[in-house]
C-alpha cells in the first residue's frame, strides 16, 4: 500500500533553470499538497501533462526525493525515515534510470538480486520465470549496449522485479516502446495487479490510463484535481470519455489559475 499525505515538493531554481523555464521565480512547486492512497490489487494511474508533477510524486515514493512537506509511506514504512526498507519493498522503473550497458541482463539480474538479499535458489527461479515471460533468454548473455530500446526496457523491467516487490512504480511504462512490447508490459502489469501487488504508474496517454488503471488521479500544475475510477470521472465531468473529461478539468483548472 502507498499512502501519500499532503505531499509538497518545492524545487529551488538555479539561474540556468530560470532561463529554461522563462521565469523570474526562485522556486517551483512541483507537487502541491497531493494526497492519495494506492491499495494492493489495484493499478493507480497519475494522469497529467508533461511537467505536471507526476514524476516528482513517483520519485518521492521511490525515496529518490524527499518531500518538502507532507509524508509518504510504503507498506507502512516512511520514505524518509526508513528509505532502505521502502527500497526493498518497491520496484521502480523509469526511462531515465538505466542498466549499466557494459553488462549482460543475466549479470545485472544476479547483481541487483544480491543487493536485495535474494537467495540464490529463489533468484534462479525468478530469473527463469521473468526471462521466459519477457523473451530475454535468447539475449541474456549479450551486453545491454547491444540491445534495442524495447529490449533495454524489458531488461530494466525484469531487473527491477528481481526481488518480487510488493509495490511497483512505473513512470511512463510504455514510453518509447513499440506496440508489441507495450502490450507485453501492460499485460504483465495487469497480471501483477491480479496477484495482489500495489501498482502506481504515471502516464499522459489517455488510452493507456483507460485500459490499465483501476483508479486515476488527474494532476495539473502539481495539484491533484480529480480522483476516481474511470466511470466516476467520466460521470462527474459529464464527459464522453477520459480525454474529454481531462480537457474539461484542464480548462477549468487553468482558467481558475488565471
Amino acid at each position: 500500500m502507498i499512502e501519500i499525505k499532503d505531499l509538497t515538493k518545492i524545487y529551488k531554481l538555479s539561474n540556468r533553470r530560470k532561463i529554461e523555464l522563462k521565469t523570474k521565480d526562485t522556486h517551483k512547486v512541483a507537487a502541491n499538497n497531493i494526497s492519495l492512497v494506492a491499495r494492493p490489487g489495484e493499478i493507480y494511474g497519475l494522469l497529467g501533462p508533461n511537467g505536471a508533477g507526476k514524476t516528482t510524486t513517483l520519485r518521492c515514493v521511490a525515496t529518490l526525493l524527499k518531500p518538502t512537506k507532507g509524508n509518504v509511506t510504503v507498506c507502512g514504512f516512511d520514505t524518509v525515515k526508513s528509505g532502505k526498507e521502502v527500497r526493498n519493498k518497491i520496484g521502480f522503473l523509469t526511462n531515465e534510470i538505466k542498466l549499466d550497458p557494459n553488462f549482460t541482463p543475466d549479470y545485472m539480474f544476479d547483481f541487483f538480486g544480491g543487493l536485495h538479499g535474494v537467495d540464490p535458489e529463489t533468484l534462479a527461479k525468478r530469473k527463469e520465470i521473468l526471462f521466459e515471460k519477457f523473451g530475454i533468454n535468447e539475449f541474456k548473455n549479450k551486453k545491454i549496449e547491444e540491445f534495442s530500446t524495447g529490449m533495454k526496457q524489458k531488461a530494466g523491467i525484469v531487473v527491477s522485479l528481481v526481488h518480487d516487490p510488493e509495490v511497483i512504480i512505473f513512470d511512463e511504462p510504455t514510453n518509447g516502446l513499440d506496440i508489441i512490447t507495450a502490450r507485453v508490459v501492460t499485460d504483465f502489469l495487469k497480471e501483477l495487479r491480479d496477484s495482489g501487488k500495489t501498482i502506481i504508474i504515471s502516464t499522459h496517454i489517455m488510452s493507456e490510463a483507460e485500459k490499465l488503471c483501476d483508479r486515476i488521479g488527474l494532476i495539473i500544475d502539481g495539484k491533484k484535481v480529480v480522483e476516481g475510477t474511470l466511470p466516476e470521472i467520466i460521470a462527474g465531468e459529464q464527459a464522453e470519455d477520459l480525454e474529454d473529461a481531462f480537457f474539461k478539468v484542464y480548462k477549468r483548472t487553468t482558467q481558475g489559475n488565471d
Binding site: A62, L64, R87, I97, K98, D100, P101, F112, V159
Partner: peptide, 17 residues
C-alpha cells in the same frame, strides 16, 4: 559517466546505505 548515463540511479534504488 554513470550519472550521465542514468545507471547510477539504479544503484540508488537498491536497499543499501
Amino acid at each position: 559517466g554513470e550519472k550521465e548515463r542514468g545507471t547510477m540511479a539504479s544503484m540508488l534504488l537498491a536497499p543499501i546505505n
